[in-house]
Write a protein that binds this DNA or RNA. Structure first.
Length: 946
RNA sequence: GCGGGGAUAGCCAAGUCAGGUCAAAGGCGCAAGGUUCAGGACCUUGUGGCGUAGGCCUUCGUGGGUUCAAAUCCCACUCCCCGCACCA
């Protein structure tokens, strides 16, 4: 079959017939479904296909269920990565150019990428074509980008709303910063794509003559254990004025702290070596401590001055031991006066744990790489299990984890220390080559997701929402709990200007929270070509909030009313789809913002989250070079194959594993389905009057599959759906064909295949349309009615009979296999009626909840039965444990069906054909040993083979 | 650290919420047979161990417990993955 031809044919027809364009229709229920719009900075790949294919399959399913489905799409231009990429292209960055090339972008196009907008436009087109080639049922009339002027107006309105509610705040905020680009840096701006991590240090002000030595630490609680101060003798230090106080810090620190403190002035240079041997005073306890040299001190980390706590910091202990071996001019008097001061006790650790841990790791000196590991281990243990000793005054007895915060707070409040920030996973370099530092932005705008009242209503609404899969609800709850202020604007990038402070551009996670509402009016804005300058806040107040329009706004009243109608028809949003990586940000912001801005009845109803796609078990990444561009994959395998591949290998939340061999497999499976279905395309319509039991059986099974798939579909367990259609149910069909001696009733087959085509249509729409047409229909299967169960075709008794037959055949095969008999005669001795009576009676009693131990007594109450005596007891004993271990509904089904005429079922020449042997069915045969005959129980005839 | 998810046969992956038809779906791989000039594809069968009668034994990360019955419920432990923000 020619996939490409079929795909193009149906995509064209769908487009021409406009069946996926949705307009308000009050006579039909609507279903509004959206997916997180993509960021157009690289080609669409298989990974994207999962979320979109899932949403599309869902949209198609809902459409077949009779909903007026709106499934729109937009493009998220907002943000800085495109800018960063463009800069790299300008700089002729080979790596990026190669990456683009390997993803199929031609050289000429890459040249145009010197303009950021060209990147966005190029990939916008790529993404859109990819979506169309995948056959997504999108209403393209509503398309927009987030830099379209009308969208900007919409975002401005949103921000005015947030501001009115008091959810916008302003304050200072530390960010990773490139001093030469003069911009905050994100992961995509750094060499090697490293995310700068910012740590908060406490700088404790040791008194040194008329100045301070600020020692920077992550463990302020160890201030009580300080024995000395470390300085790097090779480093340059400066005397500076910081917030009007004289301090000594390293030269490197001075350069960086300029970005964190506005009042910082140079006074004079000091050599590190000049400080050595002098004394400083611990501001907490007044202890006089010497200043000593140490090589491990990094002048480029924090202040370049370190306090020494040899009892609890391995580096400090090591440096002291090193110094005792090689004093470097320090007097033995000073060195001998330095004794570790324990201030923390930790279970299972000695009083001076550093000695213990140095021995354990076998560390030689302060430059030994193992010191880092030892430090981590000791810090971790002390933090979790340590308690402050009595020598720490008011903190005595406190767990270290608590003391750390307390000491820090107290020191800062009493002006004995101050906070400073440093990159703790550094050094990290900007793509321009400069080292990343911390800058404090003092006038940063935030959305205050920490607002307790806002949190509360958001959480309340979360509880009313349907989250698929449900396990994630808890995760959402936690995210709502710990969200704080979120910086919502930045200085560079594409996007909407903050309307009241045009120096700032609204950041991408903040301009994408309520845009689903914009889709409802985007069609009108696009078609009427509304002048964006007319889209003032009052317009949106009217359209979205129903506020009276007080003044003339320059847009025709009918148009405004149409927008309002359209919004009210589609809102609230019925289903929001994205990958699970968006839970801690976008999806939660989405709930927050809806709750803040819209009236309660318009809050979103459902969120659907799916896992990502792996490539042959590995994460897809540019560096691994294992990204398959979607459009290439479509050419290689076909759209339906990709759709089914990414949706059928794993459950919703799991990562799906894609591979070429999987795709090949799915491809042949789908082709098989197609060829198979084609055989019955011209068969006559089903005639319910002319059916035998086997026909009736498969028709009954077909109703079950409809039921099961519909349930799975509602819960979006799409893997289950596809598995059932493509693998599990076909086994039933095979059995049916076998039972019919390879002569299936063609009208039955046609009926079944029509149903399967419909059930598969949301997943493989092109294939199914083609088949649907071949089946003689001249409408689209995409908008056909989803199959419904035909109760008249359900036959429990036949299903049970067939299951019985299969079990007997299985048992027979088992015996043949073990005994290695080549069967010529098979005898089936079915259970006599009295056994059936007792069997059902026992099940009945167990169902009534009678203690199994009392069953025999209960049955024996019947005089009739008692006459049989011994045989009865033996029989009951043989079936009792079997019956007890049956599932409840299985027992009920047996009671419901009652006695099955086993002999009649087994008297079919199917069995003798199957085993190529003579088959005898009855209650007893002379040829069969008595003992064997006695073994028969209902549903399990005695089998004797010779 | 805080939060979330997970551990099932050679591999992938269902089953766990609602304990019982569970030696445990389905796929891949492997083996045998069929078809084929051959390869591929396809079809059938098998794929924990033992067994000349449909059975028995062991198994669902480890160790306990509840129950007539545990992959499933409870407790403890070990290991793995992901997120923690200004970045889409």
């Amino acid at each position: 079959m020619n996939w490409k031809e079929i795909e193009e044919k149906w995509q064209k027809r769908w487009f021409e017939s406009k069946i996926f364009e949705s307009n308000p229709d009050p006579s039909r229920p609507k279903f509004f479904i959206t997916v997180a719009y993509p960021y157009p900075n690289m080609p669409q790949h298989i990974g994207h296909a999962r979320t979109y294919s899932l949403a599309d399959a869902y949209a198609r399913y809902k459409r077949m269920r009779g909903y007026n489905v709106l499934f729109p799409m937009g493009f998220h231009y907002t943000g800085t990565p495109i800018l960063a990429q463009s800069k790299r292209i300008q700089a002729n960055d080979k790596e990026l150019i190669e990456q683009f090339k390997s993803l199929g972008v031609d050289e000429e196009t890459i040249k145009t990428f010197v303009l950021p907008l060209n990147i966005a436009k190029y990939f916008h087109r790529d993404l859109k074509l990819g979506m169309q080639e995948m056959g997504y049922s999108i209403d393209w009339r509503r398309e927009f980008t987030t830099i379209d002027p009308p969208y900007n107006k919409f975002i401005e309105w949103q921000f005015y709303k947030l501001k009115e509610k008091g959810y916008i705040t302003r304050g200072s905020h530390p960010v990773g910063w490139c001093p030469s680009c003069k911009n905050p840096v994100g992961q995509h701006d750094t060499k090697g794509d490293l995310e700068p991590e910012i740590g908060e240090f406490t700088a404790i002000k040791f008194i040194f003559n008329d100045a301070y030595l600020p020692t920077a630490t992550l463990r302020p609680e160890t201030i009580f254990g300080v024995t000395n101060i470390w300085i790097n003798p090779k480093a340059e230090y400066l005397e500076v004025l910081l917030n009007n106080e004289k301090m000594i810090i390293s030269e490197k620190a001075f350069e960086k702290l300029k970005y964190q403190f506005t009042k910082l002035e140079f006074i004079k240079r000091i050599k590190g070596s000049d400080l050595i041997g002098k004394y400083a005073i611990n501001p907490v306890n007044g202890n006089k401590v010497p200043i000593l040299p140490a090589d491990f001190v990094d002048p480029d980390n924090a202040t370049g001055i370190v306090m020494s706590v040899p009892a609890h910091a391995p580096y400090d202990m090591l440096a002291i031991l090193d110094l005792k071996k090689d004093p470097k001019g320090i007097s033995s008097e000073i060195l001998s006066s330095i004794n570790p001061i324990p201030i923390i006790e930790t279970p299972n650790m000695s009083t001076i744990p550093t000695i213990e841990i140095i021995e354990k790791f076998g560390i030689k000196n302060q430059l030994d790489s193992k010191a880092e590991e030892a430090t981590k281990e000791l810090y971790m243990k002390e933090f979790h299990f340590g308690k402050m000793l009595s020598s720490t005054g008011k903190y005595s007895g406190m767990p270290v984890s608590k003391a750390r915060d307390e000491v820090k707070k107290d020191l800062i409040e009493s002006n004995k220390a101050f906070k400073l920030y440093e990159i703790i996973n550094g050094p990290i370099y900007c793509r321009c080559g400069s080292k990343i530092i911390v800058n404090i932005l003092s006038d940063q705008w935030f959305i205050n997701y920490g607002d307790p009242e806002w949190k509360k209503i958001t959480k309340e609404h979360l509880n009313n929402m349907n989250i698929i899969p449900n396990e994630l609800k808890k995760e959402f709850e936690n995210v709502i709990d710990w969200l704080k202020e979120k910086a919502c604007a930045r200085r560079a990038g594409l996007g909407t200007l903050l309307p009241w402070d045009k120096e700032w551009i609204i950041e991408s996670l903040s301009d994408s929270t309520i845009y689903m509402a914009y889709y409802t009016i985007a069609r009108i804005i696009n078609e009427e070509k509304i002048d964006p300058s007319l889209l003032i806040p009052q317009v949106f107040d009217y359209v979205f909030l129903g506020k009276e329009l007080t003044s003339c706004v320059g847009i025709k009243k009918e148009i405004l009313e149409a927008m309002r109608r359209e919004f009210l028809y589609y809102y609230p949003l019925d289903s929001r789809h994205s990958g699970r990586d968006l839970i801690p940000n976008h999806l939660t912001f989405f709930i927050f913002n809806h709750v803040a801005i819209f009236p309660k009845e318009l809050w979103p109803k459902q969120i659907v989250v799916n896992g990502s796609v792996l490539m042959e078990g590995k994460k897809m990444s540019k560096s691994l070079g294992n990204i398959i561009p979607l459009r290439k994959a479509i050419r290689d395998y076909g759209a339906d194959v990709i759709r089914v591949s990414v949706l059928s290998t794993s459950e919703l939340l799991q990562d799906a594993d894609f591979s070429p061999s999987l795709a090949e497999n799915i491809k042949s499976r789908l082709e098989e389905f197609y060829e198979f279905a084609l055989k019955y395309a011209n068969a006559p319509q089903l005639n319910k009057e002319a059916l035998d039991d086997i026909d009736k059986w498969i028709l009954s099974r077909t109703q079950r599959i409809i039921e099961q798939i519909t349930i799975s579909m509602e819960a979006l367990r799409v893997r289950e759906v596809i598995q059932n259609i493509l693998y599990i149910f076909p086994q039933e069909i095979n059995w049916y064909i076998k039972r019919k001696n390879n002569n299936p009733n063609e009208s039955v087959m046609k009926y079944i295949m029509e149903i399967l085509i419909k059930l598969l249509a949301p997943f493989a729409p092109h294939l199914c349309e083609e088949l649907w047409e071949k089946y003689g229909n001249n409408n689209f299967v995409s908008i056909e009615k989803w199959p419904e169960i035909d109760e008249s075709l359900i036959n429990i008794k036949l299903e049970a009979s067939e299951e019985y037959l299969r079990n007997v055949i299985n048992d027979t095969s088992e015996i043949i296999k073990i005994t290695e008999i080549k069967p010529s005669k098979i005898y089936y001795c079915v259970a006599p009626k009295w056994k059936w009576d007792i069997y059902l009676k026992v099940i009945q009693l167990i169902e009534e909840g009678i203690d199994p131990k009392l069953i025999i007594r209960e049955i024996m109450k019947d005089k009739e039965i008692r006459t049989k005596g011994e045989a009865i007891v033996k029989f009951i004993n043989s079936i009792l444990s079997l019956i007890i271990s049956m599932p409840k509904d299985y027992r009920r089904r047996i009671l419901n069906i009652g006695i099955i005429n086993e002999a009649e079922i087994l008297k079919t020449d199917f069995i003798s054909r199957y085993f190529n042997a003579q088959v005898y069915v009855g209650e007893a045969f002379e040829e069969v040993p008595k003992k064997k005959i006695e073994q028969a129980i209902p549903m399990r005839p005695a089998i004797y083979i010779v």
